[in-house]
Nucleic acid binder design. Structure first.
Lengths: 210, 210, 210, 210
DNA sequence: TATGAATGAGACTTCATTCAT
DNA sequence: CATGAATGAAGTCTCATTCAT
């Protein structure tokens, strides 16, 4: 797996970039369905190809190993998260911005429950190199919230130490994820909106008071 | 896998109950090491036997399938959690009791990081029946905290709705687990004690205010 | 194993029907050699693949389990029997037709001694479902002779009760098979032709007299 | 396996001859049940010991290998057959004696269907040496009938060539066995007595006429 | 580009047999 | 004599990956 500072490249024998993009999206969609149903290891490449709508031979034209499929999936998720959270940032440093960011993040997770769950249960199957890359992305996600919190902190809205900033950002990320992999228990007691409200409430109050 | 209301039984061809207990603990210990290192699927039964200190044949005298090993491991964890949380319950309904419970739970997780991580990443590999049993245990764990919170609520220390009780209990459980599977990121910024303090602080403040 | 009223289907991942037919014939041939030499249980799937001329992986592209190999073998035999006995039916109801049928059946067995012996010693290793199917075929074989006898009976050449018709048909089938699994003893005393003549003689005389 | 002209000896580490006899009968009985149910290969030595009523360790005090169990079983059957057919021989050379012998043989088989079926389906699993011994016994059984037929022939009751004598004896033995391994089909159409009568009738008529 | 038959390393599991108690 | 825990060779089957068409 070739490496670049920015992104691990999954090599192909196919040249047409658009086709690559298209096929890979098919692969990711198939992978989400299958990995959710049976996990990374129990899902076979043959099945992935079949669900994706082409042959096993074709699959291997767009991916070098099964692990690549998982990597593609993880990468895809972070891409989505970034896009979603990047779409509204006014860098105002107000509590409202923070709230909006949290809300968007939670809603995103709710709309991609399966993908998130897979990522958290299967990323350990990545190679050291790929895992490292994915965990970095994860930290970037935390950093996104850390930034927003920092803005608030600088404007005096919050009063948090370095450590508290980090822990608070983590707190948000984790609670969001928990909606994905504990949905089976949570959604019997509340909707995503109620969940968001509760988290926001508790969290902000716990934070702001300082 | 025979079933009883209380516990799924893993059958053996060995008769000496003490020996069974002993060997199974060896198996669990070996499994924790290996599952942590390579995950459930990449770890082979032969390796498990080897690390446990006996032959593959012997392993299968104490376990019917590889899945049984995972089940044994999960069951073991819940056993520990219950013992730990059951060891100090004065049922006082005070905030101090709540704090102590949370602390014990977090410390337990810290001392069994690997086991907890495995459970959360691999339990999906259990059979439907075994998974159901494990998830039930998980809910029992949540219920433990729910009870303590309820006690506090009844004594007027807290003022929480049914839903809030459940969400708060979940909150605790999740944050505790997050220390296990995000330790790699967290422990670079704080110790377990600092983490506990932070969680307690934020959480309780977010809760109590009501 | 999918089921249809007519035939149990052994499923494949290979799509080319002609190739399937070809490979399966290779498998059956290999199985006859090996099952004869060491029996169903002592013959390994790896050996079967090797003798058939391909890898173990390929074997499992054309067969789902080892049992399938045995089933394929049994099915093949009945196919042959039917073809052979169906090739000359003038439905005349004469003794000559009966004699010809018996002769063809005995000659067929002589040319497939190994396959027949295997079938009678190993069919018990089939699953209940497959065994049932095979025993049904066996009864169909008996019925073939029962029909011929019935024709003779209706034309007054023979005078047999229902029960006698059945027993007589069985008699033929069994004596034929005995040439297969007792060849080791019989062929030291007579050729297949002598055996046929003796059986015909004794049997017909015992029957016709009535 | 030590060899003597008369009988293959299965060695033991136990000395008490009576106990040996007793335990072996237990083993044979257990083997009949289990080999019938699952065949020689699928039945495990552990099961045999369990059904026999003792431990696996004890089993191996009275038998050196699993194959020995099968051998013991086969040997036992021939012992029974000989005893049964030896109990009434007046060497009269009459048709009635022949008829009585046939009847006794058929009745014996009917009372030991399972054992006979096992012998014919599993004896192939014996070592070459043991198989040879068992097949010899089989030929002795044929010879028993050959003798009786010869007596009749000498007295002029029958008029058969050497070859015919052999084939006729075989005929009897085979038809008897067929009651064992085709009982599933036959007993729906007739009782053992009807079967005997039919066989006697057809066979004798086919024979005597000469 | 797309296909799918072929490959074979390697996984899980069984079970006959031994031997210390 | 009896026991049963331990052993490990060997068997069946899966599935990621390749490559000729």
């Amino acid at each position: 797996m070739a490496k670049s500072k920015e992104k691990l490249q999954v090599e192909t024998s196919v040249k047409d970039a658009q086709l690559i993009e298209f096929r890979r999206q098919q692969i990711i969609n198939a992978a989400i369905v299958l990995f959710k149903e049976k996990g990374f290891h129990r899902a076979t490449t043959r099945e992935i190809a079949k669900v994706a709508g082409f042959s096993i031979g074709t699959l291997y034209e767009y991916v070098r190993t099964k692990e690549d499929v998982l990597y593609l999936l993880c990468d895809h998720i972070y891409h989505e998260v970034k896009q979603r959270l990047a779409s509204f940032p006014q860098r105002s440093g107000t509590i409202d911005e923070l709230k909006e960011a949290i809300k968007q993040y939670f809603l995103l997770i709710d709309s991609m429950t399966d993908a998130f769950t897979i990522m958290y249960q299967e990323s350990k199957s990545l190679s050291k190199e790929a895992l490292h890359y994915v965990l970095n992305k994860e930290m970037e996600m935390v950093a996104l919230f850390q930034n927003i919190l920092e803005n608030c902190s600088e404007l005096g809205v919050l009063r948090l130490s370095e450590q508290e900033l980090f822990l608070a950002a983590n707190h948000i990320v984790i609670q969001g994820q928990s909606w994905a992999f504990r949905k089976w228990a949570l959604h019997r007691h509340c909707t995503i909106d109620e969940f968001i409200e509760y988290q926001m409430d508790t969290f902000l109050f716990g934070i702001i008071r300082k």
